[in-house]
Design a protein around this nucleic acid. Sequence first.
DNA 1: CCTAATATGTAGCCAAGGCTACATCAGGCG
DNA 2: CGCCTGATGTAGCCTTGGCTACATATTAGG
Lengths: 152, 152
Amino acid sequence: MPTTRRNTRQAPPLAMPAEPQQAERHREARTARASALLEDYVELIDDLLATGGEARPTDIARRFGVSHATAIKAIARLKAQGLAHAKPYRGVFLTDAGHLLARRVRSRHRLVVDLLVAVGVPQDVAENDAEGIEHHVSDAALAAFEAFLRQR
Amino acid sequence: MPTTRRNTRQAPPLAMPAEPQQAERHREARTARASALLEDYVELIDDLLATGGEARPTDIARRFGVSHATAIKAIARLKAQGLAHAKPYRGVFLTDAGHLLARRVRSRHRLVVDLLVAVGVPQDVAENDAEGIEHHVSDAALAAFEAFLRQR
DNA sequence: CCTAATATGTAGCCAAGGCTACATCAGGCG
DNA sequence: CGCCTGATGTAGCCTTGGCTACATATTAGG
């Protein structure tokens, strides 16, 4: 068990998050990023179904500004994860799990926007930023947001 | 110019963001996700250099909880983007651009944590969530955060 | 009822960001 | 002063999320 071998050193001296905590933190951020896309798709499909009655791949692609091929591949992943079902040429629909997820995502989205506005972020900026932020807000933080908003 | 052809319809009836706006919003969220990783690396390297004096691939990998191969590939991308430089077996260093980015990222990170804490999010939760959130907060929102914190 | 326009689906390409496995380098210790 | 160990680098594989190009369905309209 050597003491100062160059290639064995670790633990930098000054103030930084502990190594395992930081690793865990980044692992979470990575998985959040991974699920963010599918959450966005579920949210959009739910919106389209609610307002327009149907969610077609081309609609989805246009909304997201991607090619229809990209949208179709994403839909395939949604189906693989049991969040949506679709028969060829018949539009996309959400499973129960998909609906549940959509509701959670939407309420989280609203809460994030409300909080941003409450601390002085302009409405349109809040809407924009929330799109990215919402996927990284934990339940604990959401609870705090709710309390903050209720209390003033 | 047909009027109600099925496959030509668009514009769902009820309330939703306009199509181009929503597309733009998602495009931004996507690019933010893309740069998030490199920002994290730059931030970490800067921390390691500041506190430990050197940033080695293995240190970085351990901190992020990824394999050293993954870290090395990321470092290669940093170099390709002019954010870092490194000679084989000699550790990683930031370019001026890298340092600049690190400073911006760090101050943004602190601001986000401070805001979360100010609205009642527990410190440790704030630290965790900020890791993901920070990459999606626009300058406009940051300005609002600052104003909010100053004012209370 | 035909057909052209549009939507849908499929295939193949690319880059990013993970991984494991293997090869090479550097340096502290015996 | 050589070697063993840990750090570094390389190669090859996988998945995701983009894209374009091509092939196939559908359906509105004439």
